[in-house]
Design a protein around this nucleic acid. Structure first.
Lengths: 338, 338
DNA sequence: CTGAAAGCGCTAACAC
DNA sequence: GTGTTAGCGCTTTCAG
């Protein structure tokens, strides 16, 4: 069942069928109807390959991400995927997780195959050659959650987020505020550890509070990592121990809450804890956090691409407003005990 | 840079280039070398669209799954994706999460576009029309983790898994063993709630232990759900209260552990808990569980497809052995207190 | 083992 | 608004 059969059944030319089905070019309402009816009757669906070869458009976008095991990534992916599907686009997943060979292959081969109209890069700190090869594609490219040189990127203001979280704690009366940040390895990929630390420092400085290296412990954005880091922090002598902790992600904050409990400390009475993300489970844990909206970020990335891929006259281009984030106060934070 | 330019530079015909680069058909070593060199020099990469149109092969497989928010799904996806990438295949992700319109669209449109050579369906209980439409594709199809009528499916023996978990508890001396199973909604999609319940019942019956409806609470496979269900179970009067709980997934088991703690009960002294999966975080929580290996399951699904897509003479077809699972005893189970 | 050439199924000028 | 037609860039007979 090729386009020719549909054309025959509908009594029009293949060109008209193509136009009617793709929505490009003008077709009379009558013709369109006959074509659509014929197509349905025959169960006709365009061959992507033929269409792509002829038009240069694939109706497929690539999403590249470092791995799938963090909530943030899958949330972005899910948001982007749903939006793309609604526009009739497929998504090809390029997961960089693995030994590293994957990463080279993706950039050198997979993305070059002209199988995508655009790419979304999630939380990737790309190397120089990687950026080059992406640009060489000549395809629209947008980053989410991580800065890519020379590329439009959607990301919350990580410094401001961290500042807000810290100020929340300061506002409650805390002055010994610890930080569970990201370790160097994570920094290579996301860059946000540094920024979130800066935000914490800024808030502390602003409030005239000391920035003690002993109140900083870094981890890898996992629950386990957060647990270990928190134990470290909370093991300090009482006079010196943090009464509050800002964790750079909710997953690490969960770990910190568990660590506190295991030490017999009450959250929030003995130690207040704030995270970042508003993870699926944060409400369950009663975790105070700074919500960002990864699903919406993914969807927005798609909107931006779509505006370039399928320009519509009256479509206002997605505005360039900073991405929203929002303090959500729950039961993991309170005034310090004293 | 089309194949013609490579041919010119290498001093051969386009046919030879095609053969040399795709590995199909015979080419002299010398010619192959010149072609490869020329291709690299020009930075040539085949156009997928043209190749697909001409050959009917897309080097792309579709992975359909119900959503991304459960660990099991992303683990299968990650395993499958890595294996596919190694074979030079792309993966197109069809995520059914959403209001349900998604689901119809995926089966009626996306999968019909001839963009995939095969599909992997993860934990999907497909409807009759869905199965039909999948078969109509005429493409290899394998299921992972969920039964699809008339389709090769990779899944552990869920009954046996549940029996093993329950027997572990019985072996430790427990007799009042509760079950956190899956609710009806989950059953529609995964079907495994029923089986895991059957396994629990079988072990209980075998040991001559009573199967009390009051010891069963169902949930939705989330941590929150497990928490709620466990509170229900553990709220029973002491003489009647379960001394052990089998949860049908690790995520629910985590919830149960947290619930026990919140009730002031010690795990494992007051209540032992076993899960299923060996989730990323199970080791961290000290959760005794039945490990399955979703990454390996995804990879195996790919092997099966590959055997059909690219038959190699001496390649032994992936054997049809039952999938492995394995009891991992950690610190969430022990003899009952008495 | 290699080359010539006929498509694969669609889209996009270009005429009408 | 609609039809004609020339490709899109590759693979694959079929000869040689």
């Amino acid at each position: 069942m090729s386009i020719a059969e549909v054309a025959r059944l509908a009594g029009v030319s293949t060109a008209t069928v193509s136009r009617a089905l793709s929505g490009r070019g003008h077709v009379s309402a009558a013709a369109r109807e006959r074509v659509v009816a014929a197509a349905r009757e025959l169960g006709y669906v365009v061959s992507q390959a033929a269409s792509s070869l002829a038009s240069g458009r694939t109706r497929n976008v690539g999403i590249v991400l470092p791995f799938l095991s963090r909530w943030y990534f899958t949330a972005v992916l899910e948001g982007a995927q749903q939006r793309l599907m609604r526009s009739g686009y497929d998504v090809t997943l390029y997961n960089l997780a693995g030994d590293g060979g994957e990463r080279r292959t993706v950039f050198e081969h997979f993305l070059q195959r002209q199988r995508v109209d655009a790419v979304i890069a999630v939380s990737l700190e790309l190397t120089e050659p990687e950026v080059t090869s992406l640009h060489a594609l000549g395809k629209p490219l947008v980053g989410v959650g991580g800065p890519i040189p020379g590329v439009r990127t959607l990301a919350i203001d990580d410094v401001a987020v961290a500042t807000l979280a810290t100020e929340h704690l300061i506002g409650l009366g805390h002055s010994r505020i610890g930080l569970i940040g990201g370790d160097v390895e994570s920094d290579a990929d996301f860059h946000l550890p540094t920024k979130r630390r800066q935000g914490w420092e800024a808030a502390m400085r602003e409030a005239g509070l000391p920035i003690a290296e002993s109140r900083v412990a870094n981890a890898d954005f996992t629950v386990q990592g957060g647990y270990r880091a928190a134990k470290q922090l909370l093991g300090a002598p009482l006079r010196d121990r943090a009464t509050a902790i800002f964790a750079a992600s909710d997953e690490m904050a969960f770990g910190a809450m568990l660590a506190a409990r295991d030490l017999g400390l009450s959250v929030p009475l003995d130690v207040s804890i704030v995270g970042v993300d508003d993870h699926d489970m944060s409400d369950f844990f009663g975790l105070t956090t700074i919500a960002q909206f990864p699903g919406a970020q993914g969807a927005l990335a798609v909107d931006i691409l779509m505006a370039q891929l399928e320009p519509k006259g009256d479509d206002t281009p997605p505005s360039d407003t900073p991405l929203p984030f929002e303090l959500r106060v729950r039961s993991s934070t309170s005034r310090p005990r004293d």
